[in-house]
Amino acid sequence: MTKSIKNNLITYSILLCVACVGIFYGNAIFSNFKFLRVWEVTNILILLIGIPFLFFQEKAKLPNFWQDNITHKKRFLFPIAIGIVFGILDVLVFKSILHPEPYQELPPFVQPFPYSIFIYISGAFEVEVFYRLIPLTLILLFGNWYKDGEYYNTFFWAGAILTAIREPLEQLPEGNVLLLTYSLFTGLLMNFLQAIWYRKAGFLATLSIRLGHYLIWHILLGVYIQYTDLLR
């Protein structure tokens, strides 16, 4: 086993540990909050499905998690900044424009702080495992094998589009045409950029984009609602 694969496994294990801590924490405070979302052990077991794909990043011509020739700016800083931009846009549209009045209780897209840190790190991790790590690794493994990789780029762009479509179609909100268009466009664009950054800087880069978005949209917005709206 190479050092790069060991680092992939260690990082994946740390993310699993964060999810486990979130389960214990969530169960400890469950009786204090309505609509608290708490993972179960089955969520952790399902995430184990992603482990075999940690061994095939290089064979799929994807960067390993901590590849030496990729800077932390590419791996973390730029991707997080991209996610933050999408998060700010969502707050402006869904909170400032569509729901400017104070909330009377925590809406379903946020959770109480600081528990929200654990549930949304785990949620971002889960999404990226099943939206990027597994499908793109499979697609690009095949693309690198088929005719000795002659059509690798075609496989990548097809995989990027297919993985970008899934989330916005699954999470289309109810509303008018403009709201649906905004949600579909931003969802497609963010997921498409995540595929590009996965190829460019690895799994931690695509995860960082989602974490940047969740930081604004789920965590900090939740803090604002919890400690401002609900205390009025």
Rank of each mutant, 00 (worst) to 15 (best):
A160V: 07
T228E: 15
K200A: 05
A205P: 09
L211F: 13
R199L: 04
F156H: 11
W197A: 01
Q226S: 07
G222W: 00
A164T: 08
R166P: 02
V223C: 02
A205W: 09
A201G: 08
R166F: 13
R210H: 11
R199Q: 09
V223G: 10
S208Y: 14
G187Q: 00
I225E: 04
K200V: 06
E174T: 14
S208H: 00
A195R: 01
E170C: 13
W217F: 14
W217R: 06
Q171C: 15
A164I: 03
G222C: 03
W157R: 07
P168G: 03
P173N: 06
T228D: 13
P168E: 05
T206H: 05
E167L: 13
I219C: 09
L204C: 08
Q194S: 13
N176R: 03
G222A: 01
H213K: 07
Y224H: 12
E167P: 12
R199V: 06
L215S: 01
A160N: 06
H213W: 14
G202F: 02
A201Q: 08
Y224S: 15
F156W: 11
G175P: 08
L221V: 08
T154P: 04
M190G: 04
N191D: 08
S183H: 06
L178Y: 11
E174R: 11
K200F: 04
L189P: 02
F156K: 01
E174G: 12
I165E: 10
S183R: 12
G159F: 09
L221E: 13
I209T: 05
R199T: 00
T163Y: 05
K200S: 09
N191Q: 13
L188D: 07
A158E: 12
T186N: 08
L179K: 08
L179P: 06
E170N: 13
F192W: 09
L207V: 01
E170S: 12
A158W: 10
L204E: 07
Y151L: 12
T206F: 04
Y198V: 00
F156V: 02
I219V: 11
G175C: 09
L162T: 12
